[in-house]
């Protein structure tokens, strides 16, 4: 059986919000090291890989490997019923056909319990090849989210051009064009605000902003984001 408790439900709320636009149904693969998710979107344009390590839960117990087939639209609706600061406990029994979620307010005067029916999700486990990327850009995740949102007013596509001392995001459409250039900064107080560009060779690649905007929804999970680019290789965010 699985039993895992998170001190704050907001962590799973943010994760589900970041994933639900891309993934309809997928397995939570649970084992003693944690809960993993790997899924492609329906058009096989994006792969989502997520690992919630056992150390992030207290307590965490998983007796044997189990795959819990989750409908993310349903889970997202249920997670909206949790307060951000609620304790969250998820449970699934042996051969379970439901995932049980319990939300407990901080002073324990409100306890909500929901069961979500599990599904059979037929999914391949994919290996992600080790890649030496031509360019790796680290920047504040909120800045990346804003760039994707701002450039969406001009085009459905953004070209990301990484050169030695800058990265340029360019959008060009029927009504005009726009670009945002981000330069590395070293002397910043907060690590999350740091911008670095690590370059093996300059690259210039185009991506659908629809997908980048989906990925940017994960910006609430971490202060910084890393973009890794190479020709003929999927962008890794």
């Amino acid at each position: 059986m699985l039993e895992a408790r998170l001190p704050s439900a907001v962590t799973l709320k943010k994760i589900i919000d970041a994933v639900k636009e891309l993934v309809q149904d997928a397995n939570f693969d649970c084992n003693d090291s944690g809960i993993a998710l790997q899924a492609m979107d329906s058009s096989h344009v994006a792969l989502v890989a997520l690992l919630m390590r056992a150390e992030g839960f207290d307590p965490y117990r998983c007796d044997r490997n189990i795959a819990l087939g989750i409908n993310f639209a349903t889970l997202a609706k249920v997670m909206k019923c949790a307060g951000n600061d609620d304790n969250l406990t998820i449970k699934a029994g042996e051969d379970a056909d439901v995932l049980s979620l319990m939300f407990e307010s901080t002073n324990s005067d409100r306890i909500s319990e929901f069961d979500i029916k599990l599904m059979d999700v037929d999914a391949d486990h994919l290996g992600i090849p080790e890649t030496d990327y031509s360019a790796t850009i680290k920047m504040p995740s909120a800045e990346f989210q804003r760039i994707c949102r701002d450039l969406s007013v001009m085009s459905e596509t953004v070209t990301i051009e990484a050169v030695k001392d800058a990265v340029k995001f360019i959008a060009s459409g029927d009504t005009g064009s726009g670009s945002i250039t981000v330069k590395p900064n070293q002397a910043v107080d907060k690590k999350d605000m740091e911008v670095t560009v690590t370059l093996q060779e300059p690259v210039k690649l185009a991506f659908s902003l629809k997908y980048l905007n989906h990925f940017a929804k994960a910006s609430t999970l971490a202060g910084s984001v890393t973009l890794s680019l190479s020709d003929d290789v999927p962008l890794m965010i």
Partner: peptide, 14 residues
């Protein structure tokens, strides 16, 4: 590109 290409071929099935 208006549409992104599939990336499925990049990954190996385990």
């Amino acid at each position: 590109p208006a549409g992104q290409r599939s990336i499925a071929a990049f990954f190996t099935k385990k």
